[in-house]
Design a binder for these strands. Structure first.
Lengths: 134, 134
DNA sequence: ATAGATGCAAAGGGTTTGCACTTGA
DNA sequence: TCAAGTGCAAACCCTTTGCATCTAT
C-alpha cells in the first residue's frame, strides 16, 4: 500500500480535514467525496497500512469499533460523548501515574478516557444536535 | 436467567475465584470445571444477564473482546500487561480530572488504563510465565 | 406440569482475504 | 509492462438468536 493512488490520498485527506478519531465507516463516507466508488475493504487496507507506516494510530474505546487519528499530535487523551458517541481530543494529562502502579508491575504507558456530554449534546436537542451520527 | 441452575452458579463462582476481569472464553474454560458440557452461548447469556442484574460490569480494553468483573469493588482502574494481555485491578485513582475537561464539555465519568508488564512477564519467561493465555 | 434455561447450529455485524480486473510508475 | 492496488464477494471471528430439548420449581 505504498503507491500514491487516489484512494490512498483520499483516506489521508479525510484525517487532515477532520481532527478527531474516526471509524472506518466515517472514513469511507468522507473519502467518497473524493473517490465515489471507494470500497470499505480498501479503507480498511489503508487504515491498517497507515497505522503500520506510523502515520495513524488507533483509538480504541470500550467495545466500539476502532477509530483512527493522525499521529504527531503529541500526548493527549480523549473525551467520549455518551449521547452522540463522538470522540474528541483532550489536551491535558493527569500527570504522574506511578503512584497507582501496584508493587511489582512496570508502567510503560497509560490512557485516560473522559465520559460525559459534549457541548452540542449538553443542551436540549435542537437542529443537528445530539444525533448519533458515526 | 433467574433460575438457580448449575450453569448460572458455575459462571458466578468463576468470578468469586478469580479476581480480575475475564473474557467469555476464560469464563467458559473455568466454568467447565464445574459444568463440563457448558456451551459458550450460555456463558454469554449469563454474562449479559449478570450485567443486567447489576452483579457484573464490563471492562472494555481497546479493541479486545469484553471482559467482565464483579461489581462492588469500589472505584478502581486497570492495568493491562502488554505481554500476557491479562488485565489486573489497580486500587488508586488519579483524582480530580476536571482540569482536563475542555470548555463546554460536561464530565460524568472517567477511565484510566495503565499499560506495561505484570510481575510475571517482567522477568525473563520461565515456567508458566509470560504466556498469552486469555 | 410447564415456563424458563440449555446446547447446538445458524444468523449477524464488523473486519479480513481471495481473486480477477485496473492502474501507477 | 506488470506488480501493486482496487472492488466485490466470500470467509472469519466474536456475539446473538432460533429452536428442540431439558430441568428447576
Amino acid at each position: 500500500m505504498k503507491r500514491n493512488t487516489a484512494q490512498r490520498s483520499a483516506v489521508l485527506r479525510v484525517f487532515e480535514r477532520i481532527s478527531r478519531p474516526l471509524g472506518p465507516p466515517e472514513v469511507l463516507a468522507a473519502a467518497r467525496a473524493d473517490v465515489p466508488g471507494l470500497g470499505i475493504a480498501t479503507v480498511y487496507r489503508h487504515l491498517n497500512a497507515l497505522v503500520e507506516a506510523g502515520q495513524l494510530t488507533t483509538v480504541q474505546m470500550g467495545g466500539e469499533p476502532s477509530r483512527y487519528e493522525l499521529v504527531g499530535k503529541g500526548h493527549h487523551h480523549h473525551f467520549r460523548c455518551r449521547t452522540c458517541e463522538q470522540v474528541f481530543e483532550v489536551a491535558g494529562c493527569p500527570g504522574n501515574l506511578e503512584p497507582l502502579v501496584p508493587e511489582g508491575f512496570e508502567l510503560e504507558g497509560h490512557e485516560v478516557v473522559l465520559h460525559g456530554q459534549c457541548p452540542a449534546c449538553r443542551k436540549p436537542p435542537a437542529g443537528r444536535r445530539g444525533r448519533k451520527s458515526r
